[in-house]
Amino acid sequence: MSTEADPSKHIRIVNTFMKRRTHMNKNAEQALTDPEFAEYLVNNSCGDGNLNDIHDLRILFTDTSNGSEAPLTLEIGFGLGDSFIEMAAAEPTRNFVGIEVHEPGIGKCAYMAGTQNLTNVKIINGDAIQLLKQLPENHIDRIQLYFPDPWQKKRHYKRRFVSPERMAILTRSLKRGGWFHTATDWEHYAFWMVDVLDNIAGLSNQAGNGNFTPRPDFRPMTKFERRGLERGHGVWDLIYTKD
């Protein structure tokens, strides 16, 4: 057995996100403070984005109807949570964990999960890369990253989530046969992603190298995506399988 440390755990990586002040509505605020919604908020009481005690996502579902061995999806940066909750409601036998840094979105997502009585949703506040570094290998069945910040200025490209360093960390936590699914409405970022991902060891493009995947039915279309399509903007999906 090799005793070499996994180098991906020790790479210092700049943040891929910038926390923005946005309005928090009453429902979101209620979900962040009312014990009725506490079951959805994994680290709400641990301070702002403290991930120190999260080393296993499956045990979060031990006492739920699905249990800890059900198929597991992690969504990175779910925004306000509308499509994330829609997907969780559509697949009740699959467990869903969402990670986000913006509290209004975290609160709204928890509120929607609670009002729909979902039992297959957990929400984490914090940096997805830090979380992924702490998780076991071959841990997650699907990881999804929808419409990440494209960081359009060249000097900010280092902040783009899809990079060789970050994808090495992400691939490690995926199960063999598991999926990484991403989508963007920024053409430059789309071709950036396919170039990076086609060259990540251990990942295979389901559509073939250099190709994009037709939008899958299971990914809900957001109002922003629909508005963009109406204006003639493109949307590009990519799905990669871990070998």
Rank of each mutant, 00 (worst) to 15 (best):
Q134C: 13
N120I: 10
L72G: 00
S65D: 15
Q134T: 14
H139Q: 01
A28N: 05
H55V: 13
V42P: 02
R94V: 00
D56T: 00
I143K: 00
P104L: 12
P71D: 05
C109T: 15
G107W: 09
H102Q: 15
N52W: 02
H139C: 00
D63R: 07
L118K: 09
T93P: 02
A113H: 03
E91F: 14
R142H: 09
Q30S: 12
R58S: 06
Y146Q: 07
N120D: 09
G114W: 10
I106A: 06
L72C: 02
P148R: 12
C46N: 15
Y146N: 04
D149E: 08
E29H: 14
H55M: 09
G49S: 00
N117L: 08
D82S: 06
E103T: 14
E103N: 06
L135Q: 06
Q30M: 15
Y40T: 12
G126T: 05
D149L: 02
N95Q: 08
L131P: 06
G107N: 09
P104D: 07
T33Q: 12
N66C: 08
G126Y: 09
K122F: 07
L41Q: 04
F78T: 03
Q30I: 12
I143W: 01
E29K: 13
I59Q: 06
F61N: 11
N52V: 12
P92N: 05
I123T: 13
L135Y: 09
E36H: 01
G67F: 04
N43V: 13
R58T: 04
I99R: 15
Q116T: 15
F147Y: 10
P71G: 01
N66H: 05
I59C: 10
P104A: 11
G77E: 11
P71T: 00
A110G: 08
A70I: 00
C46Y: 15
L57D: 09
A70N: 00
D82T: 09
E39V: 13
L74R: 10
D34S: 03
L131F: 11
F37Q: 00
V101K: 05
I129Y: 06
E91C: 06
M87K: 14
G126L: 04
H55P: 03
A28D: 04
P150A: 03
P150C: 03
Y111T: 01
D127S: 08
I76Y: 04
I124L: 13
P150T: 02
N95P: 10
G105E: 11
